[in-house]
Amino acid sequence: MSIARFSPFELLLLKSRSQVDTATLLLLAWVLVHRQHVSEGQRRRRLAQVTAQFRHGHELGPVMSIARSQDLQAIQLAAEVVRKECGTERSLSVIHQAITVATDDGELSLANHYILRFLADLLSIAPMTLNTLFKELTGTPLAIPEDPSRDAYWQAHDPDYHARKAREAEAAEQYHQQANARAEQQQQQKERRHQQKQQKQQEKQQRQEQARQAREQEQQRQRDQTRQQEQERQQQQQQREQAERERRRSRDHSSQQRSRQQDSRRQQRASPPPPDRTTRALSVLGLTPGATRVEVRHAYRRMAQLHHPDRFYSESEQQVALASARFQRIKNAYDYLMQTY
């Protein structure tokens, strides 16, 4: 039969003069290990201070190292020993020591929140008792532990994070903007070069055009001179012709006048009126294009009876005004149609 080796804490417990004291020592060391912002030497001194009256009779070093290694089996053993051996008074003194060790002047760390509550449960101390004890010792009530698994905790405890992030984002943006500005400058330079090229090209073209225009102008001048000469010739001819015509007119003046009047009448009938206006006038009278003169007259009479302002005399003045406007429109259309048809 082989038995497993005894663990360091078991040996310590077996060697100890008082097992309860050793177990309590380990639990207090466990609480101290979870205190933040405390050096190792401070922890050991504090533990020695608190447990000055303990009768364990061994060094504190091994206990601290066991607590630091978070040896769960050792802590379980210590808890069992403490639970088995502690009466009511002793358990109260143990929790008292645990609270003082956990919150000397600083705040209770999150882990110690849970450890203290575990010890209270272990020593069967009611929440009320724990709260009053805690308040007596520290002056502040035992708060509900904060919850780092929530977003709100981090917004409260890590406010720099967002500022830092914002700063980083700004820096990135600035870098981006600078890069953009550089790119824009390069583009502008490119465009300038391009524009300069274009200007040069345009100047060239202009010069070429000017040369062309000069040539054309010279050609035109030559043409104009020839034209003027021709015109002068034509004018001379026309003058001669006019003189001849005047002689003829003076001969048969009376006969021409009659013929002219007849011509004008024919022209009036022959030239068709604009078709748009006719159709509009016809539609005012409720007729389709191609209606005869008789139809137009009948339609006009009917519409005039319908829309005569006198019919609306008994009704409001506005109705009368509207009717007169309609009647006027109808009459205009009829007049126009009578002229054209």
Binding site: R83, R117, F118, D121, L122
Partner: peptide, 9 residues
């Protein structure tokens, strides 16, 4: 330790 239903838990 049989403390899964403690008052503080």
């Amino acid at each position: 330790l049989g403390l899964s239903h403690g008052a503080h838990w």
